[in-house]
Design a protein around this nucleic acid. Sequence first.
DNA 1: CGAGTTTGACCTGCGC
DNA 2: GCGCAGGTCAAACTCG
Length: 399
Amino acid sequence: MEKKIEQHQKEQLNSTKNTETKIEHQEQQSQASSSSSHMANLATSSDHHLHQLELAGNNINLSSIFDTPISLPFPYSYFEDHPSNNPNSFLDLLRQDQHQFASSSNPSSFSFDAFPLQNSNDTNLFFTDLPLPQPVTTKAESSEVVNTAPTSPNSTSVSSSSNEAANDNTNKEVAVKDQVEGDQQEHKGTKPQLKAKKKNQKKAREARFAFLTKSDIDNLDDGYRWRKYGQKAVKNSPYPRSYYRCTTVGCGVKKRVERSSDDPSIVMTTYEGQHSHPFPMTPRGHIGMLTSPILDHGATTASSSSFSIPQPRYLLTQHHQPYNSMYNTSLSMINRSSPNGTFINPGPSSFPGFGYDHMPQASTSTTSAIRDHGLLQDILPSQIREDTINTQINEEDKK
DNA sequence: CGAGTTTGACCTGCGC
DNA sequence: GCGCAGGTCAAACTCG
């Protein structure tokens, strides 16, 4: 099997490099109020995004995915607003974002909660095309977002979903408390602590942010330094899941990396937690954002050159609110492609510094018919995946 | 020698 | 209660 994987990776190195990106995010109602003013502005341009979706040639009917009509929250086009910033690479974008966010006094000025979607469950959905730089804070409620971001040799797709937190109680104080305890335990990780954790609480999972990346590289470089602490075989998947932890002292951020068994070219990177430190500028972590080893060499090491996309600031606001069956409202935008197989920008980037405009060719849609395996199952509800797959199949049939 | 990886063992949650 | 699968630990190992 290992040989198989290696062979696959080698094959992927020779394959076309392309990128797809998608982010889905869902947020609780109460959170909408915190960014209502921003949202209002964004809502006015939803038609614009929808139009772009149609122009993309996919004619994705979001309403067919969601139970109810939704508004499209892609009102903001980074490249339209910042034409001079059109970067050459995803890492460039990350760098720009890093700068932009670092200089922002308003931590929520750019976050997922700025792009709500309403569904039948009164749950806000947030879509974005691109990830945001890693915020330096803590979060409480668990959430999960599948995201993809463009990076030259890779294709990325994004979707989001809530996790078991939806089943947890929605008491804000409890959630915060659990979070704190969870962080403490996670940083120490002793067995007694684990036992105490089990006693006192149901495990409160960290907020998650996942990327579906079409890439030959398992670990894509986000500039942070990661240490692999485990690897497990995934049921129904020939590919193992790797577990990484941020090497920065006191930072409990973890990430998991696994490949789709259906489409080995798709790598799912799931981030859990939030970095509690500034963006590393170490000799190894540094320039992950400044000069992409991926771009230069096409392959990197698992630890220092891993492509982990900095988590978006929106996670900062993932506290307090209950997650109401986010799965039911997740939208999969994976693998949308134009009839000619070229990736089409699904719309203006919801986040500054990210966009598809510069993205290289992307794969065809068939590559992302992801079934529920492993983490993929965690993040994309089977129904949504099926809907998405069916949509893709229908589109394929039309062609 | 330090940092990172590998890997078997162990722990935990969950479904039956 | 049992078994399974996911997640984590930590000793041994590798690499620069």
